[in-house]
Design a protein around this nucleic acid. Structure first.
Lengths: 154, 154
DNA sequence: ATTATTGCAAAACGTTTGCAGGGGG
DNA sequence: CCCCCTGCAAACGTTTTGCAATAAT
Protein backbone atom coordinates (compact mmCIF):
# COMPACT_ATOMS: atom_id res chain seq x y z
CA UNK A 1 0.00 0.00 0.00
CA UNK A 2 2.51 2.57 1.20
CA UNK A 3 5.99 2.70 -0.31
CA UNK A 4 8.79 3.90 1.95
CA UNK A 5 8.97 7.13 -0.04
CA UNK A 6 5.33 7.92 0.59
CA UNK A 7 5.83 7.20 4.24
CA UNK A 8 8.80 9.54 4.45
CA UNK A 9 6.93 12.26 2.56
CA UNK A 10 3.92 11.95 4.83
CA UNK A 11 6.09 12.10 7.92
CA UNK A 12 7.80 15.19 6.54
CA UNK A 13 4.57 17.03 5.81
CA UNK A 14 3.18 16.00 9.16
CA UNK A 15 6.30 17.26 10.92
CA UNK A 16 6.00 20.62 9.18
CA UNK A 17 2.34 21.06 10.01
CA UNK A 18 2.77 19.95 13.58
CA UNK A 19 5.80 22.14 14.05
CA UNK A 20 4.01 25.24 12.81
CA UNK A 21 0.78 24.56 14.65
CA UNK A 22 2.69 23.92 17.84
CA UNK A 23 4.16 27.40 17.48
CA UNK A 24 0.69 28.87 16.91
CA UNK A 25 -0.58 27.02 19.93
CA UNK A 26 2.35 28.18 22.06
CA UNK A 27 1.73 31.81 21.15
CA UNK A 28 -2.02 31.69 21.65
CA UNK A 29 -1.91 29.83 24.95
CA UNK A 30 0.27 32.63 26.31
CA UNK A 31 -2.06 35.29 24.94
CA UNK A 32 0.02 36.51 22.00
CA UNK A 33 -1.32 37.19 18.50
CA UNK A 34 -0.36 35.38 15.34
CA UNK A 35 1.06 38.20 13.23
CA UNK A 36 2.74 38.32 9.88
CA UNK A 37 6.11 39.20 11.35
CA UNK A 38 6.05 36.22 13.69
CA UNK A 39 4.94 33.83 10.97
CA UNK A 40 7.65 35.01 8.60
CA UNK A 41 10.41 34.73 11.19
CA UNK A 42 9.27 31.25 12.15
CA UNK A 43 9.08 30.10 8.54
CA UNK A 44 12.54 31.41 7.73
CA UNK A 45 14.00 29.61 10.74
CA UNK A 46 12.13 26.43 9.87
CA UNK A 47 13.47 26.29 6.34
CA UNK A 48 17.09 27.21 7.00
CA UNK A 49 20.24 26.09 8.77
CA UNK A 50 20.94 28.03 11.98
CA UNK A 51 21.15 31.74 11.15
CA UNK A 52 22.92 34.72 12.64
CA UNK A 53 20.77 37.69 13.54
CA UNK A 54 22.00 39.67 10.55
CA UNK A 55 21.38 36.75 8.18
CA UNK A 56 17.88 36.48 9.57
CA UNK A 57 17.32 40.23 9.16
CA UNK A 58 18.64 40.05 5.62
CA UNK A 59 16.29 37.21 4.68
CA UNK A 60 13.30 39.12 6.01
CA UNK A 61 14.38 42.48 4.60
CA UNK A 62 11.56 44.53 3.10
CA UNK A 63 9.00 42.27 4.76
CA UNK A 64 9.77 42.60 8.47
CA UNK A 65 11.62 45.47 10.12
CA UNK A 66 14.90 44.80 11.94
CA UNK A 67 13.42 45.92 15.26
CA UNK A 68 10.50 43.54 14.88
CA UNK A 69 12.83 40.65 14.12
CA UNK A 70 14.67 41.36 17.36
CA UNK A 71 11.41 41.65 19.29
CA UNK A 72 10.10 38.45 17.74
CA UNK A 73 13.26 36.51 18.56
CA UNK A 74 13.12 37.91 22.07
CA UNK A 75 9.57 36.60 22.46
CA UNK A 76 10.34 33.26 20.82
CA UNK A 77 13.23 32.76 23.21
CA UNK A 78 11.06 33.46 26.24
CA UNK A 79 8.49 30.97 24.95
CA UNK A 80 11.30 28.51 24.12
CA UNK A 81 10.36 28.43 20.44
CA UNK A 82 13.89 29.32 19.39
CA UNK A 83 17.28 28.86 21.04
CA UNK A 84 20.65 30.50 20.61
CA UNK A 85 23.59 28.29 19.81
CA UNK A 86 27.09 29.64 20.27
CA UNK A 87 29.09 29.94 17.09
CA UNK A 88 32.63 30.93 17.88
CA UNK A 89 31.92 33.64 20.42
CA UNK A 90 28.88 34.84 18.53
CA UNK A 91 25.60 33.01 18.19
CA UNK A 92 23.12 31.63 15.69
CA UNK A 93 19.41 31.03 16.01
CA UNK A 94 17.42 27.89 15.35
CA UNK A 95 14.13 26.36 16.38
CA UNK A 96 14.49 24.94 19.87
CA UNK A 97 14.47 21.36 21.08
CA UNK A 98 10.69 21.15 21.35
CA UNK A 99 10.52 21.76 17.61
CA UNK A 100 13.43 19.54 16.65
CA UNK A 101 15.59 16.92 18.37
CA UNK A 102 18.16 17.93 20.99
CA UNK A 103 21.69 18.06 19.55
CA UNK A 104 25.01 19.93 19.44
CA UNK A 105 27.29 21.10 16.65
CA UNK A 106 30.68 20.71 15.05
CA UNK A 107 31.92 24.03 13.65
CA UNK A 108 34.25 24.02 10.65
CA UNK A 109 36.73 26.86 11.11
CA UNK A 110 37.44 27.08 7.40
CA UNK A 111 34.06 27.01 5.64
CA UNK A 112 32.00 28.03 8.68
CA UNK A 113 29.60 25.12 8.31
CA UNK A 114 27.73 23.98 11.42
CA UNK A 115 27.38 20.19 11.44
CA UNK A 116 24.89 18.74 13.90
CA UNK A 117 25.68 15.56 15.81
CA UNK A 118 23.24 13.46 17.77
CA UNK A 119 25.35 10.76 19.40
CA UNK A 120 25.92 12.32 22.79
CA UNK A 121 24.54 9.93 25.37
CA UNK A 122 27.86 9.37 27.11
CA UNK A 123 28.62 13.07 26.86
CA UNK A 124 25.38 14.01 28.57
CA UNK A 125 25.88 11.41 31.28
CA UNK A 126 29.36 12.67 32.02
CA UNK A 127 28.10 16.26 32.17
CA UNK A 128 25.45 15.32 34.68
CA UNK A 129 28.06 13.52 36.79
CA UNK A 130 30.28 16.60 36.85
CA UNK A 131 27.38 18.83 37.85
CA UNK A 132 26.53 16.39 40.63
CA UNK A 133 30.11 16.46 41.93
CA UNK A 134 29.88 20.23 42.26
CA UNK A 135 26.40 20.21 43.83
CA UNK A 136 25.20 22.03 40.76
CA UNK A 137 21.52 22.04 39.86
CA UNK A 138 21.93 21.73 36.10
CA UNK A 139 19.46 23.48 33.82
CA UNK A 140 21.29 23.43 30.49
CA UNK A 141 24.58 23.16 28.67
CA UNK A 142 26.40 24.23 25.53
CA UNK A 143 28.91 22.11 23.67
CA UNK A 144 30.74 23.12 20.55
CA UNK A 145 33.49 21.24 18.74
CA UNK A 146 35.78 23.23 16.46
CA UNK A 147 37.98 21.94 13.66
CA UNK A 148 38.14 21.19 9.98
CA UNK A 149 35.35 19.28 8.30
CA UNK A 150 36.06 16.33 6.02
CA UNK A 151 35.87 18.47 2.85
CA UNK A 152 38.13 21.24 4.10
CA UNK A 153 40.90 18.86 5.17
CA UNK A 154 41.77 18.09 1.57
CA UNK B 1 63.75 21.17 55.58
CA UNK B 2 60.84 22.33 53.49
CA UNK B 3 57.38 22.43 55.00
CA UNK B 4 54.49 21.83 52.64
CA UNK B 5 53.52 25.49 52.96
CA UNK B 6 56.92 26.65 51.80
CA UNK B 7 56.75 24.27 48.90
CA UNK B 8 53.35 25.54 47.83
CA UNK B 9 54.49 29.16 48.17
CA UNK B 10 57.59 28.52 46.10
CA UNK B 11 55.57 26.77 43.41
CA UNK B 12 53.16 29.70 43.35
CA UNK B 13 55.89 32.32 42.95
CA UNK B 14 57.62 30.20 40.34
CA UNK B 15 54.35 29.83 38.42
CA UNK B 16 53.84 33.60 38.41
CA UNK B 17 57.33 34.38 37.21
CA UNK B 18 57.27 31.65 34.59
CA UNK B 19 53.83 32.71 33.38
CA UNK B 20 54.90 36.31 32.79
CA UNK B 21 58.25 35.44 31.25
CA UNK B 22 56.59 32.95 28.95
CA UNK B 23 54.38 35.77 27.69
CA UNK B 24 57.45 37.98 27.14
CA UNK B 25 59.16 35.15 25.33
CA UNK B 26 56.08 34.47 23.20
CA UNK B 27 55.88 38.11 22.11
CA UNK B 28 59.59 38.49 21.39
CA UNK B 29 59.95 35.26 19.49
CA UNK B 30 57.23 36.49 17.11
CA UNK B 31 58.90 39.87 16.73
CA UNK B 32 56.57 41.97 18.90
CA UNK B 33 57.65 44.56 21.46
CA UNK B 34 57.04 44.43 25.18
CA UNK B 35 55.01 47.58 25.77
CA UNK B 36 53.27 49.03 28.78
CA UNK B 37 49.81 48.42 27.36
CA UNK B 38 50.56 44.73 26.79
CA UNK B 39 52.10 44.28 30.23
CA UNK B 40 49.16 45.95 31.95
CA UNK B 41 46.56 43.88 30.09
CA UNK B 42 48.45 40.68 30.87
CA UNK B 43 48.80 41.56 34.55
CA UNK B 44 45.12 42.39 34.91
CA UNK B 45 44.14 39.08 33.32
CA UNK B 46 46.64 37.20 35.46
CA UNK B 47 45.29 38.56 38.71
CA UNK B 48 41.56 38.30 38.01
CA UNK B 49 38.79 35.86 37.30
CA UNK B 50 37.74 35.73 33.62
CA UNK B 51 36.72 39.26 32.55
CA UNK B 52 34.36 40.68 29.96
CA UNK B 53 35.86 43.15 27.52
CA UNK B 54 34.17 46.08 29.23
CA UNK B 55 35.34 44.92 32.66
CA UNK B 56 38.85 44.70 31.29
CA UNK B 57 38.59 48.17 29.76
CA UNK B 58 37.27 49.53 33.03
CA UNK B 59 40.14 48.07 35.02
CA UNK B 60 42.68 49.59 32.65
CA UNK B 61 40.88 52.92 32.32
CA UNK B 62 43.16 55.96 32.34
CA UNK B 63 46.19 53.73 31.78
CA UNK B 64 45.45 52.02 28.48
CA UNK B 65 43.06 53.25 25.81
CA UNK B 66 40.05 51.13 24.91
CA UNK B 67 41.28 50.70 21.34
CA UNK B 68 44.65 49.46 22.56
CA UNK B 69 42.99 46.95 24.85
CA UNK B 70 41.11 45.55 21.87
CA UNK B 71 44.27 45.47 19.76
CA UNK B 72 46.21 43.81 22.55
CA UNK B 73 43.56 41.15 23.09
CA UNK B 74 43.47 40.59 19.36
CA UNK B 75 47.22 39.98 19.33
CA UNK B 76 47.16 37.85 22.47
CA UNK B 77 44.51 35.65 20.90
CA UNK B 78 46.53 35.16 17.74
CA UNK B 79 49.55 34.21 19.85
CA UNK B 80 47.33 32.00 22.03
CA UNK B 81 48.18 33.96 25.16
CA UNK B 82 44.52 34.54 25.97
CA UNK B 83 41.35 32.66 25.07
CA UNK B 84 37.71 33.58 24.94
CA UNK B 85 35.31 31.52 26.98
CA UNK B 86 31.62 31.70 26.22
CA UNK B 87 29.49 33.09 29.00
CA UNK B 88 25.84 32.78 28.13
CA UNK B 89 26.04 33.91 24.51
CA UNK B 90 28.64 36.53 25.35
CA UNK B 91 32.25 35.89 26.26
CA UNK B 92 34.91 36.50 28.87
CA UNK B 93 38.67 36.56 28.55
CA UNK B 94 41.28 34.65 30.50
CA UNK B 95 44.86 33.50 30.05
CA UNK B 96 44.92 30.49 27.78
CA UNK B 97 45.80 26.88 28.49
CA UNK B 98 49.54 27.34 28.06
CA UNK B 99 49.48 29.80 30.93
CA UNK B 100 47.15 27.85 33.18
CA UNK B 101 45.74 24.33 33.23
CA UNK B 102 43.10 23.32 30.66
CA UNK B 103 39.58 23.39 32.08
CA UNK B 104 35.94 24.30 31.47
CA UNK B 105 33.32 26.16 33.48
CA UNK B 106 30.04 25.85 35.28
CA UNK B 107 28.02 29.07 35.05
CA UNK B 108 25.61 29.95 37.84
CA UNK B 109 22.57 31.59 36.27
CA UNK B 110 21.65 33.36 39.51
CA UNK B 111 24.85 34.89 40.85
CA UNK B 112 26.78 34.81 37.56
CA UNK B 113 29.78 33.02 39.08
CA UNK B 114 32.00 30.99 36.75
CA UNK B 115 33.20 27.84 38.50
CA UNK B 116 36.07 25.99 36.86
CA UNK B 117 36.12 22.19 36.74
CA UNK B 118 39.06 20.00 35.85
CA UNK B 119 37.70 16.44 35.88
CA UNK B 120 36.95 15.98 32.22
CA UNK B 121 38.96 13.01 30.98
CA UNK B 122 35.94 11.01 29.86
CA UNK B 123 34.37 14.12 28.39
CA UNK B 124 37.43 14.84 26.28
CA UNK B 125 37.68 11.23 25.14
CA UNK B 126 34.05 11.20 24.09
CA UNK B 127 34.50 14.46 22.21
CA UNK B 128 37.43 13.07 20.28
CA UNK B 129 35.42 9.98 19.42
CA UNK B 130 32.58 12.08 18.03
CA UNK B 131 34.99 14.16 15.94
CA UNK B 132 36.51 10.94 14.60
CA UNK B 133 33.09 9.60 13.62
CA UNK B 134 32.50 12.69 11.53
CA UNK B 135 35.99 12.72 9.99
CA UNK B 136 36.57 16.00 11.78
CA UNK B 137 40.09 17.25 12.38
CA UNK B 138 39.52 18.65 15.85
CA UNK B 139 41.40 21.78 16.92
CA UNK B 140 39.43 22.87 19.96
CA UNK B 141 36.17 22.79 21.85
CA UNK B 142 33.99 24.77 24.22
CA UNK B 143 31.87 23.30 26.98
CA UNK B 144 29.72 25.26 29.34
CA UNK B 145 27.35 23.92 31.99
CA UNK B 146 24.58 26.20 33.19
CA UNK B 147 22.58 25.92 36.40
CA UNK B 148 22.42 26.97 40.01
CA UNK B 149 25.50 26.74 42.22
CA UNK B 150 25.35 25.14 45.66
CA UNK B 151 24.90 28.50 47.43
CA UNK B 152 22.14 29.77 45.20
CA UNK B 153 20.04 26.62 45.53
CA UNK B 154 19.20 27.49 49.14
C1' DA C 1 66.84 56.61 13.99
C1' DT C 2 63.46 53.78 12.44
C1' DT C 3 59.42 51.38 12.86
C1' DA C 4 56.01 49.40 15.68
C1' DT C 5 52.55 50.84 18.80
C1' DT C 6 49.58 54.00 20.95
C1' DG C 7 45.83 57.57 21.87
C1' DC C 8 42.30 60.08 20.06
C1' DA C 9 38.24 60.77 17.44
C1' DA C 10 35.11 59.19 14.33
C1' DA C 11 32.95 55.53 11.89
C1' DA C 12 30.81 51.06 11.67
C1' DC C 13 28.17 47.57 13.71
C1' DG C 14 24.64 45.21 16.60
C1' DT C 15 20.90 45.95 19.59
C1' DT C 16 17.34 48.56 22.12
C1' DT C 17 13.80 52.07 22.82
C1' DG C 18 9.88 55.70 22.27
C1' DC C 19 6.28 56.88 19.73
C1' DA C 20 2.59 57.25 16.50
C1' DG C 21 0.10 54.66 13.17
C1' DG C 22 -1.79 50.05 11.39
C1' DG C 23 -3.39 45.18 11.73
C1' DG C 24 -5.20 41.27 14.51
C1' DG C 25 -8.76 39.24 17.57
C1' DC D 1 -13.50 48.65 17.93
C1' DC D 2 -9.89 48.29 21.03
C1' DC D 3 -5.42 47.25 22.03
C1' DC D 4 -1.41 44.71 20.73
C1' DC D 5 2.11 44.89 17.47
C1' DT D 6 4.77 47.04 13.98
C1' DG D 7 7.68 50.41 11.40
C1' DC D 8 10.42 54.23 11.67
C1' DA D 9 14.04 56.86 13.51
C1' DA D 10 16.99 57.88 16.95
C1' DA D 11 19.72 56.38 20.95
C1' DC D 12 23.01 53.23 22.89
C1' DG D 13 26.93 50.03 23.72
C1' DT D 14 30.55 47.54 21.54
C1' DT D 15 34.21 47.01 18.25
C1' DT D 16 37.01 48.79 14.38
C1' DT D 17 39.69 52.13 11.79
C1' DG D 18 42.67 56.28 10.10
C1' DC D 19 45.99 59.26 11.39
C1' DA D 20 49.33 61.85 13.81
C1' DA D 21 52.14 61.54 18.00
C1' DT D 22 54.98 58.52 20.85
C1' DA D 23 57.65 54.95 22.69
C1' DA D 24 60.41 50.62 21.98
C1' DT D 25 64.50 48.40 20.06
Amino acid sequence: MFGICNFVAICYIFAMISSRSRMVETLQSSGFSITMARSVVFDVLEHNEPLTMSELCHKTKGVVDRASVYRTIDLFEKLAVVQRITYGWKYKLELSNEFQEHHHHLLCLKCGKLLAFHEHDKLEQEIMAIARNHEFNLTGHQIELQGLCADCQK
